[in-house]
Simulated assay, not measured.
Amino acid sequence: MGLRRTFKLHGRFGRIVALAAMFFFVPAVGAEATNLTIELNKLEPQKESCRAYVVVTNNSSTVYQALKLDLVLFQPDGVIGRRFALDLGPLKAQKRSVKLFDLDTPCDQVGSLLINDVLECNGETGSIPNCLADLAATSLAKAKLSK
């Protein structure tokens, strides 16, 4: 009987420990959510160049008048190919949109893209702080997009 009670105590104790762990170690719902998601969706050859399709999802109530990124293109061997600015604005609130831009590089020479920094980030009321922290970068293309 004493052995049975010990297991029941451990069973309750185990549940209490599990519940406590949920409160201390599980992030709050939405903690991983970001205001802006930038996805490199596909790269399409255009003669001697490459067209990038970017899907931008604005999950916030903020209207972005300007969102200019400092991008670095890495070649497949990891060597930097070029650096350029990309203006994704304007972005409507609570809206998903597609932006196109041409890289002056053949698609087979695009290994990855890095969001190096945010050059400009403005809403209706002026500059928006911490834009880079609010960005999430993803890719469905062979070339990866990161920050």
Rank of each mutant, 00 (worst) to 15 (best):
G2I: 14
R4P: 11
R5V: 12
T6L: 15
T6C: 14
K8E: 05
K8V: 04
K8G: 06
G14T: 03
V17M: 12
A21Y: 13
A21Q: 09
M22K: 13
P27K: 08
E32H: 11
T34V: 11
L40R: 06
K42Y: 13
L43A: 00
P45M: 11
P45Y: 10
Q46S: 07
K47A: 09
E48T: 12
C50G: 13
A52K: 09
A52P: 12
Y53D: 00
Y53K: 11
Y53S: 09
V54I: 11
V54F: 02
V56S: 04
T57Q: 11
S61D: 12
S61N: 15
V63K: 11
Q65E: 15
A66S: 10
A66N: 09
L69Y: 10
D70C: 00
L73N: 00
L73V: 09
F74C: 05
Q75M: 13
P76G: 08
G78R: 09
I80R: 00
G81R: 01
F84R: 10
A85V: 04
D87T: 05
G89P: 05
Q94R: 15
S97P: 05
V98Q: 02
K99P: 13
L103Y: 02
T105G: 07
C107E: 03
V110A: 00
V110D: 02
G111D: 08
S112C: 03
L113C: 04
L114S: 02
N116Q: 06
D117T: 00
D117E: 13
L119A: 03
E120Y: 04
T125C: 02
I128V: 10
P129C: 02
A133F: 11
L135M: 11
A137E: 07
A141G: 03
A143P: 00
S146Q: 06
K147D: 01
K147P: 15
